[in-house]
Design a protein around this nucleic acid. Sequence first.
DNA 1: CGTTGCGTTGATCTCTATCAAAAAAGGTGG
DNA 2: CCACCTTTTTTGATAGAGATCAACGCAACG
Lengths: 213, 213
Amino acid sequence: MKINSFLKNIFLFSELTETELNNVASVSALKRVRKGQHVFEEGDTATSFYAVAHGAVKVFKINEEGTENILHVQNDGDLIAEAVLFGIKRYPANCAAIKDSTIISIPKEGFVDLILRNPKLSIKFMSAYSRRLKGFVDKIEALSNSVEQRLSVYLIEHSVRSKGRQVCELDISKKDLASLLGTSPETISRTLNRLEKQDKIAIESNKRIIIRQ
Amino acid sequence: MKINSFLKNIFLFSELTETELNNVASVSALKRVRKGQHVFEEGDTATSFYAVAHGAVKVFKINEEGTENILHVQNDGDLIAEAVLFGIKRYPANCAAIKDSTIISIPKEGFVDLILRNPKLSIKFMSAYSRRLKGFVDKIEALSNSVEQRLSVYLIEHSVRSKGRQVCELDISKKDLASLLGTSPETISRTLNRLEKQDKIAIESNKRIIIRQ
DNA sequence: CGTTGCGTTGATCTCTATCAAAAAAGGTGG
DNA sequence: CCACCTTTTTTGATAGAGATCAACGCAACG
């Protein structure tokens, strides 16, 4: 079974026995989603939660004016909409792929029982929750800072040291980046230029930014 | 034991047997905090989590400029800092009473074991988490709306029908309300006046607002 | 190549923060 | 209950960050 190998890489399931893993795998489904394609939409009846096997998805809301607001981006191994297990009847937000991705859909049916039989699983769930919660707290706090600060933090947190330089490869579109940081594409563009003028960054290409010192 | 009666009113503990309740109670402590007094501060070593027995507390961050940013307000029966149970070593935010309150402090020591022995407890924890998470999602989304909209939502959500009128009793200071809604007291004041001019509300007194139709 | 969506640039506008100061409300002690 | 002090709230004036609108260049793609 192919799903099994994916499941093993997901932190949540690392405590399960082979048999349990098989049980989960037998009811789960691998799903390929192309960039831009939706996984679920706000208000849909929630029967499954998901895990990202490979790729990246955005979880977002759309307000009355039609503006998209990205809550978070989930990458390899991350869970999506696990709140489904705890009473939520409809998805509270939208989810769509921002790269071609492979995701695993796991029906909630029967999963609560699995948790009840595997208390350690619940601890894992909760630590995943804690992290998510922490992320949201940081995000709420960040929203009181300026766009320049939020963008700087994003660039630094998504950069890696390479050949003595601190490099940030932008793996999401600037439109999505704007939405994630709660601003507009225009402001992102202008702020990047400003940061470059201040010699804080160097824009090497559209998708690659060097962070100075 | 006085703590026992408080514990029973907390959703989280409603599934425990009398013995377990006693066990929790025996290591817990009732704590009275006066309005304004701190429960814990960001960065403090986290050894306990809390439940509000009676009163209200605010959980907040303070940014570099010293501005206070309220994440959420917790009332009777709500948990505080339960993330302590799942690996967090230091409190990630501050907590202070906004009314004279009684809170229960529960040492994390031994509590994880209790969860492992009571899987249902973990489900309760997780549903509490879900709610918190949902609250944060709403808050992040709301921050992209105008202050007028955020304030309107707050007023409506905190109002009750009474004698044929929809009444909102403000039980927190406008300063705190401003911080909770991510704005300034001045803007709250002005926005309330604007809403009244638009006949959307009637300001009956400093602490009581009538919502029109 | 035309089309379509993304990114940049320019110009403008408005919401909201901020500063300052007065007014109102709460507490406290006599 | 009053006088006094502190904190909160309101009001006014001002400035600035960032949204929005519009237009254009650009790359991807059928």
